[in-house]
Every structure is written in C-alpha cells, then in structure tokens.
C-alpha cells in the first residue's frame, strides 16, 4: 500500500525538516519512557512517604528542601540535601515524581492511541458511507455529526463520564511478570471510560475528513469502472474508497493523538481519569504546592507539552510528505 514514491517523499521531507527530527527524537524518548517505565523507574510510583534516618517524613521533597519545625518554642530550619534517590523530588505525599512521570507517559500514550483508534473505527466508516452515498443519507448523517460538533468536547466528555461512571481496566505488566522490575505495580490501569469518551467526542473529525475524501473518490473514473464491472457498493467502499482516503486520515490521526492526550490531561486534572498515574492528575495534586514545590506540577506539565509538540511535529511531517498540496498550518482538528 505504501508506494516507493511515498517512501521517498517521507525520507526527503524528513531530511529537510529539522522540526521533524526533533519531533521524532522526542516522541521516541517518550515512547521508551512509557514502554519501559517499570524498568526505568527508581521507585514504585504508588509508594508514599520519604523518611529520614530518624523516621521523620519530609514530603514534599525536592532537589533541596527546607523544613521548619518548632523546637522548644523556637523555629528551627532543617535543610534536606538534594537526594540522589529522587531525581525529580517527591510530591506532597512523598511519591517519586520521576517514576510517576514515566508511568504517566503510559497512561497518556495509551489513552491517546486507543482513543484515536476508537475514533477512527467509528468516524471513518461513518464518513465514508455518508460521503459515498451522498444525498439524503449524507444529509441525515452529517446533521448527526454537526450535533456532535456543537458540543464543546470537554463538556460532552464530562457528561458522558457522568452517565457511564468510571471504569479502569488493569493491564498486566510484562516486565513485572518477567521478574526484571521487582517492586513495581503488577498492572497498569487503562482508564477505560476516558478512552471510550475521548473516542466518542473526537470521531466526528474523522467522519468529516473521510466524507470529503469519499465524495471526491466516488466520482473518480476507477470507481465508475468498478461499477461497470459489476462491483457492489461494499466492494467499492472497501477496495477503492477506503484505501484511497487513508492518507488524510493518517495525518489527522497523529494530530488527534496529541489532542486526545491534552483532553485526557484535562479530564484527569478535573479528577475524572480513574487512575492517579496520570500527568493531569499530578498537576492537580501539585498546584497547592506551587510556591514551595514547583516541580510536582511542572514536571508532568512539561511531559504533556513535549509529547503534544512532538506528535504535532511528526503530524506536520506526515502531512507535508503525504500530501504536498496542503500548505502551511492546516488541520483545524482538536
């Protein structure tokens, strides 16, 4: 399906574009972080508390930390030295921020990929059928899509979560099973409801793109030729319309992964994620301590920013090389 011309376009655009390289490096780094989180993490992300030799807890703990205690009516300042044990400090309940960053990448990427996959599965067939048949069918189906578009996606997502409740699916961790990551959580929770909901609020974009493609492809002469050969609508849709409409869908999908990561962060920030191992949740946890422990919120925030930027950069690269006709910053999705 990928022709030589497309391959050469991809590699040429990649060579010429610094941004594409930056994006790729960043995304690979984030993927490695997420995939190998149990191996790379220094602490179990759920373990709370950091105790000094005397058994005193010092949350939150940063690269350097002053704590104050009243001893005999006098204020005494203890300074905790930067700890080699916690690269990025701990959060307010003493959990290791670095380890939680790694596991948070898992959640974001899983929701981003699965949510986009779901949106593609709903939106592309919907759009292809709508655009291919046209007429009344198209009118009716696109009004449904318009109604979906009329809701702000965050509001719609909150409403859906409210209706469906929160469901998380524990995914067993192969590293822990293989015994290379002792002390790490045995499973990673996939926030099922959130994945479903982000899919349900973003499929419309895919439907619209697929519809536009189908509308132009159905008038192509090879579709007429197929019809004159006796192919039925299902064969034409699967054999001609679907393969030829995939390019813009792929480009949109990369951009939507980034958009969904943002949406998931917003949802978990608001506390609807269903898992605490999420960047948005971390930001929310740390916001009360921004003055004294900035890293608790900032580290996951940087995680979100970098992953969204890297995916968008790669999306631009794909768009430029797959479809040279679209210039500049387009998309408008998300």
């Amino acid at each position: 399906m990928i022709s030589d011309r497309i391959k050469s376009n991809l590699s040429r655009e990649f060579r010429e574009s610094l941004l594409a390289k930056v994006g790729l490096v960043l995304l690979v780094a984030i993927l490695i972080m997420g995939l190998f989180a149990p191996v790379l993490a220094t602490h179990n992300p759920h373990t709370t508390g950091y105790f000094d030799d005397d058994g005193n807890a010092y949350p939150p703990m940063g690269v350097s930390y002053d704590s104050h205690q009243w001893v005999d009516g006098e204020r005494v300042t203890y300074t905790a030295e930067p700890s080699a044990d916690h690269y990025l400090g701990t959060n307010n309940i003493g959990q290791d921020v670095f380890s939680r960053l790694l596991f948070g990448a898992r959640t974001s990427l899983m929701v981003g990929v699965f949510g986009t996959g779901l949106a593609v599965l709903i939106g592309v067939p919907f759009g292809l059928v709508s655009g291919y048949y046209g007429g009344r069918v198209d009118d009716a189906m696109m009004r449904v899509a318009d109604i979906m578009l009329a809701f702000p996606s965050l509001v719609l997502a909150l409403a859906l979560i409210g209706v469906m409740g929160s469901l998380t699916i524990p995914i067993p961790d192969p590293f822990v099973f293989a015994g290379v990551a002792d002390g790490m959580p045995a499973s990673t929770p996939l926030p099922g409801t959130v994945t479903l909901v982000v899919g349900l609020v973003t499929w419309v974009w895919f439907a619209r793109v697929a519809r536009g493609e189908a509308m132009s492809i159905r008038n192509e002469e090879y579709v007429k030729a197929a019809r004159s050969l006796g192919a039925n609508d299902r064969e034409i849709l699967l054999k001609h319309v679907l393969p030829n409409s995939l390019t813009p869908v792929i480009v949109l999908a990369t951009i939507q992964v980034a958009a969904i990561i943002l949406l998931e962060s917003s949802l978990s920030y608001l506390g609807f994620s269903g898992t605490t191992l999420s960047w948005g949740y971390e930001i929310q946890q740390g916001q009360d301590y921004l003055r004294t422990a900035w890293w608790v919120s900032t580290v996951p925030g940087i995680g979100i920013v970098l992953s969204v930027i890297s995916i968008n950069l790669l999306g631009d690269w794909l768009r430029d090389s797959l479809d040279p006709n679209i210039e500049g910053e387009g998309g408008g999705a998300g």
């Binding site: 192509e220 002469e221 090879y222 030729a225 004159s228």
Partner: peptide, 17 residues
C-alpha cells in the same frame, strides 16, 4: 459482464493504489 466501458482519462480510471 457483457457491456464494458473504456474511459477517457487513463490517469483517473485506474486505482492508484
């Protein structure tokens, strides 16, 4: 099967994929 067509534009009458 019995009636077929040859189109004008040989570029759009063949599926590029």
């Amino acid at each position: 099967r019995d009636a077929q067509v040859v189109f004008q534009d040989p570029f759009s009458s063949l599926d590029p994929r």
